[in-house]
Amino acid sequence: MTTAKARREEIYHLAVTTGLASVEELSRHFRVTASTIRRDLAHLNEEGKLTRTYGGAVALGAHPEPSLRQRTGEAYEQKHAIAAWAAAEVKDGENILLDGGSTVGALAHALRGRENLSVTTPGINTLQELADSPGIQVDCLGGRLRGVSQTFVGPLAETALERMSFDRVFLGADAVTADDGLCEADHAQTRLKELMARRGDAVYVLADSGKLGKRPFHAWAKLALPWTLVTDSGADPGQVALFSEAGVQVQLVQVPAGQQASA
């Protein structure tokens, strides 16, 4: 059972990364009463972390970027369901590009043991996942290391991409919207994602439903159509409709029963 302290820490994390801080949403998310959430918000307000608003609260200060380690444990079942679907799309003999991030890292894990694959990545977690898979040739996009995301970015990585092409490109994102595309905390990262998308015959964005329609940061990468959004079946139907209307192909992946609400 989640302790009050742990719940309050997660409430603060949700507020600064996704804006999820309404009493109604938080009550559903944690499966506690609205009065319990109001007490949590009052406590966080007293600590100077949140400021109360009508019906909820907002975080004080800028949105911090969660580390890769923090993100790996969020929406765990959704991410692995998405990764399993994406892994099934990859055919033997293909040359694919895997972005950094926790969801694409889960895809790398799902590909372990495959034969006759070529994988290129800027993500340290993907390199670690595939390092002992003899049937997979792994190339690294080197460059400047962003410690918080554990990915390489910058001119060296961008220049290397100009010499490559891929059967499939799998991208992650901090958030994604139908109108502006991928949202990230860092402009160098969005620039690299935009370039990666240009080098693939088929482009997929792997994003759990909690990331749809959110705008936590101010760096964006708009992708040229066609591309496929792969998300879980818990996605808001209104958001799914917005992506479909924008010309994006949406793939909803089922999460095993009883696990959707546990993330």
Rank of each mutant, 00 (worst) to 15 (best):
K211C: 00
I96N: 02
A257F: 05
D180I: 09
E9R: 08
Y12C: 07
L195S: 05
G56F: 06
I82K: 13
F152L: 13
P122H: 04
R112F: 01
A21T: 14
Q78C: 14
L192F: 04
V148W: 08
L130R: 02
A261N: 10
T190A: 15
A197S: 11
L212Y: 01
Q189F: 10
G210Q: 00
A235C: 09
A4K: 07
K91R: 14
L171W: 10
Q70W: 05
V138F: 05
G238H: 01
L98I: 11
A84L: 13
N45L: 09
C183Y: 09
E65L: 09
G172T: 13
A202H: 08
T177L: 04
Y12D: 12
R191S: 07
R168G: 00
P155C: 06
G56L: 03
K5A: 13
E115L: 00
P226N: 12
A15K: 03
V148F: 01
S133N: 07
G247T: 07
A21W: 00
D40V: 08
L20C: 06
L44S: 03
E89A: 07
R7F: 02
R71Q: 10
D132K: 11
G101C: 08
V205E: 06
V255K: 03
R168Q: 08
P64K: 04
Y54E: 15
E162Y: 04
K79M: 12
I11M: 12
G247F: 06
R168F: 11
N45Q: 15
W227F: 15
R163N: 12
D132L: 11
D208H: 04
Q251F: 00
R163G: 03
E46L: 11
S233A: 08
A81T: 14
A4L: 06
R215M: 07
D232F: 11
L14Y: 00
E94P: 00
Q260H: 07
S35N: 15
R191V: 05
S67V: 10
D208E: 14
G234H: 00
E162T: 05
L212I: 06
H63D: 10
R38A: 07
G105R: 14
D167S: 13
F30G: 08
D179P: 01
T53H: 10
A157V: 05
L156F: 12
D139P: 04
A84T: 01
T36D: 10
L161N: 00
G56T: 14
L161Y: 10
L44W: 05
Y12W: 09
L182S: 01
F217Y: 15
F166R: 03
A86Q: 12
C140I: 15
F170T: 13
E194R: 14
G113S: 03
L212W: 00
L161D: 03
